[in-house]
Simulated scan of single mutants.
Amino acid sequence: MKFFYVQAPVIPMDSLRFRKKASASVTTTRRIHAFYAESFRVSEVMLNRLGYPPPPLPHATAEKLSQEDIEELAEDTREALRLAPDQPVPHLTRALERAGIAVAPIALNDMGGEENGTSSDHFGVSYWGGPGEPALIEYFPGSGDRDRFTLAHELAHIVLHTFRPWAPEPEDEAHRFAAALLVPFRRACEDITEQLMLTDFARLKATWGVSIQALIMRGAAIGNIDDVRKRSLFVQLSQRGWRKSEPVSVGQERPLLLWKTLQRLYGVRPYVPASEDLAIPPTVLRSIIPTPTREVSGATPIDAPSSVVKFQRRSH
């Protein structure tokens, strides 16, 4: 009953930023909005109780952003996340959490009540109220490289569009920012050239934990790959069946911040006591903050603070 009396945060539908396909259904989007609102409420309450600092992120305010502006903001964001300026990001989820940005998976129940942790049209959603306010990124778990790009894409919305809701092409800006964050400009200029073959891009994927398709687009964004070569590479991807299933598997990352916060506040078996205090059913709370597994496929143990995702080759 407490659920009906609790004060929910006001998160306007049009203030949420989604990474989704144009074909995404309005009904599913509304369900995700409702799920996200509860997730945000729970994470905000818990992090505030422990005095967790808000994220120290840069934010764009200019009316229009050039590629150079996006590169600079990506560099500033790396610095804010305490990441090396020109090295691969070993564990993006942990970097976000160290900076005070909560990360959580999305698991919606289907009509039969079964949990469905995937969405074919939605990838992620985020919201940040601005400096001094909490932030939350949620995502539908998929492949390791897709999840990392989704997190970087949602971080882009937080940095680029919190104070620029009128941006004319927010999705394009977010894609370019995400690629710039994951593959910094100097290294991209050195590593991505027009002479690369698809096998070379697969090697780069193993280094950077970024999909081959995103790497090709990154090369085009910085001017190292022209339109003719880009089209040729994507044709080759389609011919090999790599548009849907790329070689080289990237280990999946798992959030830890909200789980550790939940345990600190409610003990080693937190769901029942937390559900009463937070006015949320235990099953929904478990969906928002799942119990972490000891091992992550392709990665070192999840409970190691400095765990590094190992990008592994997969024969094709």
Rank of each mutant, 00 (worst) to 15 (best):
R269E: 15
E253C: 01
K244Y: 11
A214S: 13
K230C: 06
K244F: 06
R240C: 11
L237M: 15
K260Y: 10
F234S: 14
K244Q: 08
V248F: 02
R264T: 09
Q263N: 07
W259Q: 10
Q236E: 12
Y266V: 04
V228I: 09
R229E: 15
R240S: 05
W242H: 02
L257N: 08
K260L: 14
R264N: 10
R218Y: 02
Q239S: 13
G251T: 06
F234A: 07
E246R: 08
L215I: 07
K244M: 13
V248R: 01
R231H: 07
D226G: 01
L257H: 08
S238N: 14
L262A: 01
L256K: 09
I225T: 08
V228T: 11
I216C: 04
R218N: 10
V248E: 02
D227I: 09
V248W: 03
A214Y: 06
Q263G: 05
G241M: 10
L258Q: 07
P273Y: 03
E246S: 05
Q263K: 11
L265Y: 07
S249Y: 09
A214D: 06
G241L: 05
R231D: 15
V250W: 00
D227K: 04
A214F: 01
G223E: 01
Y266F: 13
A221G: 05
S238G: 15
R269S: 10
M217C: 15
P270I: 04
I216K: 01
P273I: 02
P247I: 00
V268L: 13
A214E: 11
I222D: 03
L265Q: 10
K244E: 11
L215H: 03
